[in-house]
Write a protein that binds this DNA or RNA. Structure first.
Lengths: 216, 216
DNA sequence: CCTTGCTGTGAAGTTTTCTTCACAGATTCA
DNA sequence: TGAATCTGTGAAGAAAACTTCACAGCAAGG
């Protein structure tokens, strides 16, 4: 069950939304001010946040910025009066996922929420995919050595790598380099030299962390 | 080529050792005081340290403690006068790898160094082995889900896990749990419940780091 | 031009990992 | 006690990962 945080200073509006969303099968939590919202979001994560742009105290825009700091990938839908749609567009530039204009049609609201959640699910899948690739690459000791060599030497040619690993068959090295390329850890430039990608750099960082952990 | 740090206040003794070890095929660096030794060890790592127990200023014992803090797995050989062999034993309890008594036979010294370095190599292999196990465990998405479930719920029975993963064949789950047990990430108590080991906890920490890295 | 070394492909194989299934001893609980 | 559920073994097969080999284009250097 997806959870949604409703942030609005108007109690009646909060109650309305809560009823609509509960009926639609979501779990809801409400906050009446920006700081309350930030506090709640810090303690647990929500699948989406409905955030009023205009509130006394902290403005919706400020809250948006803070929420994005807490979780850069959190999904935030701005609620705005018709008159201030421009501001909503601005909010999207700052990381909001979408906006809806008050007064709104219930169906529009639900569709918007659904789309945004769908988007989140999609992104999570992408991430999981990367993870799978990365980890299955790391599972092989030859590939780990390759990564380390590339880390140490910045760029290397096929035969350098092959000799350094004392492997007789260079096609074996090609095979592993290929899987590293598929998982986006390594790339090859026009000179045919192999390099670590930015992601590869990150992964080797994590590898050393893991090594230290395991040897402690 | 293995590098050795020689720590002794006697310049003649340092020169002697340097000559012997250089000839034996080691690279040497010297330090005349404890603090100098610590400084050098902080900047780069040595395969072994030869450390005089009795020195003006910081005592060998204090230096030993500091060096161990810098690198818990660094190999330290204490050098001690015959009269203070008891202290050397004490040093071993504090983490020194071995000791030699002054005056010593050159061959004894070389053998001691060799054994200690051998030990280091062995430990490094063990570590690499653990790493291999851990990473090939993580390569499989089902096993990652299992780890996450166990992390969230502290302890779970076989069928709980099976249902949670919507897997129809429980023997499949048994298979993956078995490989997690082999790599020492999970264990089973007398109640047949599965738990994460301490190592498993560490690994999942690292997993989340990696995830954040990859999604950034 | 010919040789040598580098980079690569594609198609067998081999090995390892993963899945499935048939079965069976415990345990629970009605 | 008897039926249902849980936990597990072992073997056989399928799938994925890895290795090996035969071959080929291309560039550099004599």
């Amino acid at each position: 069950m997806k959870s949604i945080l409703i942030v609005d200073d108007d109690p009646e509006f909060r109650a309305n939304l809560t009823e609509i969303l509960t009926e639609a099968g979501y779990r809801t939590v409400t906050a009446s001010t920006g700081s309350e919202a930030i506090e709640k979001a810090a303690n647990r994560s929500f699948d989406a946040v409905l955030l009023d742009l205009i509130m006394p105290g902290m403005s919706g825009m400020e809250v948006l910025t803070e929420l994005k700091k807490l979780g850069p990938k959190s999904k935030i839908i701005m609620i705005t009066a018709f008159a201030t749609v421009d501001n909503a567009v601005h909010a999207i530039k700052r990381g909001a996922s979408d906006y809806i204009a008050k007064p709104f049609n219930i169906d529009d609201l639900l569709v918007t929420i659904k789309l945004v959640l769908e988007e989140a699910r999609f992104e999570a899948n992408i991430k999981k995919l990367d993870m799978d690739y990365a980890l299955s690459s790391l599972a092989n000791p030859i590939r780990r050595k390759l990564i380390r060599l590339l880390r140490a030497n910045k760029k290397m040619r096929l035969m350098e790598l092959t000799r350094e690993l004392s492997i007789t068959d260079h096609t074996k090295v090609i095979f592993h380099l290929k899987t590293l390329r598929d998982s986006n850890i390594v790339y090859q430039d026009k000179d045919k030299s192999y390099h670590l990608t930015r992601e590869g750099d990150r992964i080797i960082d994590c590898l050393s962390i893991l090594e230290n952990y395991l040897s402690a």
